[in-house]
């Protein structure tokens, strides 16, 4: 697994397309989904998937844990939302913490972790 993270609009997806040769039809866009399509090579917007799972009343960390084997060969792209003010909205507070916990778990399991800053990738692991 490769975990690619960075702030919003930093060029994460472009980095993955350029560096891992991923085609458009191999990318799963989380958008409004609460489940990953495991047939795809890359998962884009894990932060959105986590928010959708929370809104469904389920536990995103449990979901990731129970599917670790199935994502072990994926490239996971997630926006880092960990460095702002604690949100007033309790759902967004839960979201912020869940994204942090899920990313920590994914980073431990990943062979490679890349942070994107202004379009530039730095391999952290």
């Amino acid at each position: 697994m490769v975990l690619v993270f960075g702030g919003a609009w930093q060029g994460k997806l472009e980095y993955v397309i350029q560096n891992y040769g991923v085609r458009e039809d191999e990318i799963f866009y989380c958008d409004d989904s609460s489940e990953i399509d495991f047939s795809k090579k890359a998962v884009y917007g894990l932060d959105r998937l986590i928010l959708n799972i929370i809104r469904d009343g389920a536990d995103p960390l449990e979901y990731i844990k129970s599917n670790l084997d199935r994502i072990s060969d994926k490239i996971i792209i997630c926006t880092d939302i960990s460095s702002g003010v604690v949100p007033m909205d309790p759902v967004l507070r839960q979201w912020r913490e869940a994204v942090g916990r899920c990313m920590a778990l994914l980073a431990r399991s990943a062979e490679r972790v890349v942070r994107i800053f202004c379009g530039i990738g730095t391999v952290l692991k």
């Binding site: 960075g6 609009w9 702002g84």
Partner: peptide, 24 residues
């Protein structure tokens, strides 16, 4: 200004996206 847990309104996010485009 890209790592906070806020779902911004369309205009604010367009500004953020625009600044990130300039940065990149």
């Amino acid at each position: 200004i890209y790592s906070d847990a806020i779902l911004y309104d369309e205009l604010t996010d367009a500004y953020r996206r625009g600044l990130a485009y300039i940065d990149r």
